[in-house]
Design a protein around this nucleic acid. Structure first.
Lengths: 329, 329
DNA sequence: CTGAAAGCGCTTACAG
DNA sequence: CTGAAAGCGCTTACAG
C-alpha cells in the first residue's frame, strides 16, 4: 500500500534520481535509452509524483483559487450564474493545466480563511467571482502580490471583466420607448451592489435624456421582491405601461403580480428583465431580457488570469450587452 | 517579498523550530511564556505556514476532491442541482476544515486527470457527484484505498447517499391515480442513467399493481425532449388524462405541448414532474413535482465522507421522497 | 548527457 | 517542557 517514490523508480531503472526527475518533467537533455528504462519502471511501479514534495521544491502549485462570494441562503438569484460561471471557469482552467480550488466567501470568517489559504501558497493565483457588493477580500489579496482577477468589478487594484450593465439597461429602456411605451418604471436590485447601481443608472440616463420621468421601486433581486415592487408601482402609478426589472427573477415576480391584477402582458404592460436565465424561457409569456453572457464572461476572466501568469499586464474588459426579444414586449 | 519561514519565527522568538511548530499546532506541552513570545513573533512577521511543506511532513492535505461528472454542454437539466450540491457540499466541508478541490469529470481525459490527481496525494478523500450513468472513475478510485463516497449510486464498492427515485415515482403515480386519473403516461429520462431506470420502475410497478396499462415515451431530461415525447404520447393515446415526467424540465416541455394542443392543465391532463427545481414554481400552472432534497442530499453525503475519515464504515443511505402538490394536478 | 548533493519548509520521535 | 536531528519526496544548480 506504500506508494512508490522517485527513489524507488531510480533504483529499479538503475539510474540516478536526477535522471528520473528529468524524464518525468520532460527535459530534453535525456538519452533515449535512459528515458525508455525510466518510463518502463514508472509504468511497472505505477509511479505518480507526490504533489506536496513537488510543490515544495518548485514553489509552484499549478492551482488556482476560484473564490465565490456565497450569498446568504435563500438568495437564489445567482444560482444559474454560479453554475455557469463555476463550470466554465473550471473547464478553461483545467484545460490550461490549472487545478481549481473552490472557495466560498460569504462570511467574514470565510474571508479570513481564504486570505490564509492564499498566504500559505496553496495556489498560484486567484479568480474572484463577486456578484455581491463591497468586499474586503480583493484589496487584501491584491496586496499580497499574487496574480488576481475578478469577474465583476470590485477593487481598483484588481483587473476585472465586467458585464456592460449600463449599456444593457439602456438597451432595454430604449427598446420599450421605441415601442411607444410612455410610462416606463424600473425595479432595482439591492443598491449596495455595483451591478444594481449601474443598471439603475442606465435606466435613469435614458429616461432623462428622452424627457421621461423616472419611476423607481427598489427590490433585492429575489422573485418575491419583484412581485412586491410591482404591486407598489401599480398602486403609485396605475397607468404605467412598461417595466424594466434589474434581473429576471424580479421580472418573473412582476409578471405574476401583473397577471393577478388583471393586466395583460405585453398588451397593457411590457416587461423586460436582465440576465437571460433559463427560467426566462419558461414564463408565460416568455420574457424579453438583456442577455448576460456568463460563459464568455467566465472565459474572458480566466484568460485575464492566464495572461497575468505569462507576465501580462491586462486591462479591464467590458462585455457588450445584448437584448433578447421574446413575448413580453 | 520573501515570506517568513518557521525558522525566521524561531530566530526572532529566540526559541527552537520545534517549539514554534508546537505552538502553531496547538500542542498542549508548551510553557505559556514560550507560547507568548512565539505568537508575538508570528504576528510581527505575519507568518503563515507553507502548505506544501506541511503536507509533505504530515502526509495529509486537509483537502477533499469534489468530482462532478460534467455533462456535455447543452444538457442543462442538472444545473440547478450542480449549484445546490456544490455549494452545500463546499459549505459543509469548509466548516469541517476541509478544503474543496473542484474537479469536472465529463470526458475520458478528465477522468484520467482526476485519477492522477488523487494518486498524487493531493487530497485526503473524494466525493463523487454523479448524476450521470456508468463511469469508470468510481471503481478506479475505490481501488486506491482512499476514502471515497458518492452522491447517487454508482459502484458497489463506493458508499453512497441516494434519492429514493423509486419511492418518489410511486408517490407521483399514486397521487394521480388517487385523483381518479385512468390513463397515466410517463416520460422517462435517458435509460442509461440509474435514476431514470428507477423512476420508470417506480411508475410501472404502481401501474401494474393497480391493474393499469403502462404508457411510456422516452426522453433525455431536456425540455425539448419532454415536448416531443408529449406530442408523441398524445398521438398514440389522445385520451390520456395524466402524465408523470421523470424530471421537471421535461414536464415543462410537456406543459407547452399540452397548451399548444388545446388541452387544459390540470382539467384535461394532469402533470407531475420530478426534482422540484426552481423553474417549477414559475410555470403556468405551477408544477406538482417530487421534491429532490438536494441540500440534505449533499449534507448527508459529506457526513458519510467525514465519517469515513473518522474510521467509520458507513452504510448507504436513501433519502425519503416527498411530493409537492401545486396547480398542475 | 548524468549523478551526488544541497535545499525547499515543515513535523516528529528521541534525548535530555 | 525543550532542542538537535532526521526525514517527508521532490527539483536543480553544479561538476564532470
Amino acid at each position: 500500500m506504500n506508494r512508490p517514490t522517485l527513489e524507488a523508480v531510480a533504483a529499479r531503472a538503475g539510474v540516478s534520481k536526477s535522471s528520473v526527475s528529468r524524464v518525468i518533467n520532460g527535459a530534453s537533455t535525456v538519452a533515449p535509452s535512459i528515458r525508455e528504462v525510466v518510463l518502463r519502471a514508472v509504468r511497472e511501479l505505477g509511479y505518480v509524483p507526490h504533489a506536496a514534495a513537488r510543490n515544495l521544491a518548485t514553489r509552484r502549485t499549478n492551482a488556482v483559487a476560484l473564490v465565490v462570494s456565497d450569498p446568504p441562503k435563500g438568495l437564489v438569484s445567482d444560482d444559474p450564474m454560479f453554475s455557469a460561471v463555476v463550470r466554465q471557469a473550471s473547464r478553461k482552467l483545467e484545460a490550461a493545466g490549472k487545478q481549481v480550488v473552490l472557495m466560498l466567501a460569504g462570511s467574514e470568517d470565510s474571508r479570513t480563511r481564504v486570505a490564509q489559504y492564499v498566504a500559505a501558497s496553496h495556489v498560484d493565483g486567484v479568480m474572484l467571482v463577486s456578484m455581491h457588493g463591497a468586499d474586503s477580500l480583493p484589496s487584501t489579496l491584491a496586496r499580497k502580490g499574487i496574480p488576481i482577477v475578478s469577474l465583476g468589478r470590485t477593487n481598483p487594484a484588481v483587473p476585472y471583466v465586467d458585464n456592460d450593465n449600463l449599456g444593457g439597461a439602456a438597451l432595454a429602456v430604449r427598446h420599450l420607448l421605441g415601442q411607444g411605451r410612455r410610462r416606463v418604471a424600473t425595479i432595482t436590485g439591492p443598491l449596495d451592489m455595483i451591478a444594481s447601481q449601474e443598471r439603475l443608472t442606465g435606466y435613469t440616463a435614458v429616461m432623462r435624456e428622452t424627457g421621461h420621468r423616472s419611476i423607481v421601486a427598489i427590490g433585492d433581486f429575489t422573485r418575491i421582491s419583484g412581485a412586491d415592487a410591482m404591486r407598489q408601482l401599480l398602486q403609485d402609478d396605475p397607468g404605467l405601461d412598461a417595466v424594466f426589472a434589474a434581473n429576471d427573477l424580479m421580472a418573473i415576480g412582476a409578471l405574476r403580480t401583473l397577471r393577478e391584477s388583471g393586466r395583460r402582458v405585453p398588451d397593457d404592460v411590457a416587461v423586460v428583465g436582465f440576465d437571460d436565465i433559463e427560467a426566462a424561457l419558461y414564463t408565460t409569456p416568455a420574457l424579453t431580457t438583456v442577455h448576460s453572457p456568463m460563459t464568455d464572461w467566465a472565459t474572458a476572466t480566466v484568460d485575464l488570469l492566464l495572461g497575468l501568469f505569462e507576465g501580462g499586464r491586462n486591462a479591464p474588459l467590458l462585455l457588450p450587452a445584448d437584448l433578447v426579444v421574446r413575448e413580453s414586449t
